[in-house]
Simulated assay, not measured.
Amino acid sequence: MKVLLQRCRNASVTVDGQVTGKIDHGYVLLVGITSTDSDKEINYLADKIAGLRLFEDEEGKMNHSIKEVEGSILSVSQFTLYADTRKGRRPSFTEAARPEIAKPLWELFNTKLREKGFTVETGVFGAMMDVTFTNDGPVTIMLEA
Results as ranks from 00 to 15, higher is better:
48 K>F: 07
48 K>S: 07
48 K>H: 07
49 I>P: 01
50 A>C: 10
50 A>G: 12
50 A>M: 01
50 A>N: 13
51 G>D: 13
51 G>H: 11
52 L>P: 01
55 F>C: 02
55 F>E: 05
56 E>L: 05
56 E>P: 04
56 E>F: 00
56 E>H: 06
56 E>T: 14
57 D>S: 08
57 D>M: 02
57 D>R: 04
57 D>N: 14
58 E>W: 00
58 E>V: 03
59 E>H: 12
59 E>K: 15
60 G>Y: 01
60 G>H: 04
61 K>L: 09
61 K>P: 07
61 K>E: 14
62 M>G: 05
62 M>W: 04
63 N>F: 04
64 H>A: 14
64 H>P: 09
64 H>D: 12
65 S>N: 09
66 I>M: 08
66 I>P: 01
67 K>R: 15
67 K>N: 15
68 E>R: 01
69 V>H: 00
69 V>M: 10
70 E>L: 09
70 E>S: 15
71 G>H: 03
71 G>S: 08
73 I>N: 06
73 I>P: 02
74 L>N: 06
74 L>S: 09
74 L>E: 02
75 S>Q: 01
75 S>G: 11
77 S>W: 00
77 S>C: 03
77 S>I: 03
79 F>V: 08
81 L>H: 05
81 L>C: 09
81 L>F: 04
81 L>M: 09
81 L>V: 02
81 L>G: 06
82 Y>C: 01
82 Y>F: 14
82 Y>V: 04
82 Y>D: 12
82 Y>S: 10
83 A>L: 02
83 A>R: 11
84 D>K: 08
84 D>C: 00
84 D>P: 05
85 T>I: 11
85 T>Q: 14
85 T>A: 14
85 T>P: 08
86 R>C: 10
86 R>T: 13
86 R>P: 07
87 K>H: 12
87 K>V: 11
87 K>N: 15
89 R>P: 04
89 R>A: 10
89 R>G: 13
92 S>K: 06
92 S>R: 07
92 S>D: 15
92 S>Q: 10
94 T>L: 11
95 E>C: 09
96 A>G: 11
97 A>M: 03
97 A>D: 08
97 A>E: 10
98 R>S: 13
99 P>W: 03
99 P>K: 06
99 P>S: 13
100 E>R: 09
100 E>I: 08
100 E>S: 11
101 I>F: 00
102 A>P: 00
102 A>Q: 01
